[in-house]
């Protein structure tokens, strides 16, 4: 699994990164990443700050398009398409690959509309009330919201807002959900609830999650990718790269790289 295989794309592979290098302007933030992300599993990205985890994650649904000067070399294969092909519509991509962000970012709308908005623009034709309830339930926030669906999304607490954002992402029924440190701004109880939600979700979705919390990676992830960053000769900053990508158990119990072992055992980073 960990061996780079640029050409063959197995059927249970959801997304495949082939020699991906991402730069901000002329600064290369991550270099030469090869990865086959399996379908229907949770993959965790771990590594020290600034090694490019978020950058790679955002590359998976072309969120980096919003950052001026950010460019990508290499190929990101999803559903037999290279996502960075000129003909690909990033809007289309994001409808199939949803995202939950580090900071909760509900829309300036009611709780109900926060959910319904995404579904509606994705052409949802079913029963909207039912979808809202189902999504909120899946995100484990229904009980807190059910009596105030008409109130602003901002009236919820931070943890509830984050779960609302997860519900919003689920409601559009994407095939993949990307989560960038979804629990970093939350208290332990909300974190636990969101982890339960993830266990629930991985039955129907492929999930990629960036986390700084190693216990969390162990608890929720089937696969783990360890990134690191190194200063290079003549470079302006540290360049990130993928060190090791394997089953979570292997990464934490018998990593093949010394730096992985150092990181997961808390000896650095």
């Amino acid at each position: 699994m960990s061996s780079p295989s640029p050409s063959s794309v197995a059927s249970d592979v959801c997304m495949s990164l082939q020699d991906v290098t991402i730069s901000y302007g002329s600064f290369e933030a991550v270099k030469n990443v090869y990865m086959d992300l399996p379908r229907g599993k949770v993959t965790a990205f771990i590594g020290p700050s600034g090694c490019g985890k978020s950058t790679v994650l955002r590359a998976l649904n072309r969120m980096n398009d919003l950052i001026p000067g950010c460019s990508l070399k290499g190929r990101v294969i999803f559903d037999q398409h290279d996502l960075y092909d000129k003909r690909v519509d990033p809007v289309e991509v994001r409808r199939r690959i949803g995202m939950v962000f580090q900071k909760p970012n509900p829309f300036p709308k009611s709780i109900y509309e926060n959910i319904a908005f995404g579904a509606r623009i994705n052409g949802y034709r079913g029963d909207m009330d039912e979808l809202v309830e189902r999504s909120l339930r899946k995100a484990a926030v229904w009980d807190e919201c059910k009596d105030k669906l008409k109130e602003s999304g901002f009236s919820l607490s931070g943890g509830q807002q984050q779960r609302l954002c997860i519900a919003r992402a689920i409601a559009t029924e994407p095939e993949v959900i990307l989560m960038d440190e979804p629990c970093s701004a939350l208290d332990p109880i909300s974190t636990l609830k969101i982890e339960e939600t993830m266990h629930e979700l991985k039955r129907s979705y492929t999930i990629m999650i960036v986390t700084h919390n190693m216990q969390q990676a162990v608890r929720v992830a089937d696969m783990t990718a360890f990134f690191n960053a190194e200063a290079v000769e003549g470079g302006t900053g540290k360049v990130g790269y993928l060190v090791e990508f394997n089953e979570t158990e292997n990464i934490f119990n018998s990593p093949s790289q010394q730096s992985t072992l150092d990181y997961v055992s808390g000896r650095f980073g």
Partner: peptide, 19 residues
């Protein structure tokens, strides 16, 4: 973050602007 959220559920540019 709010922009990202809007694009993240798959809006177009003007969908994000208006909504």
């Amino acid at each position: 973050e709010l922009r990202q959220g809007a694009y993240g559920v798959g809006t177009t540019r003007w969908g994000a602007i208006f909504n």
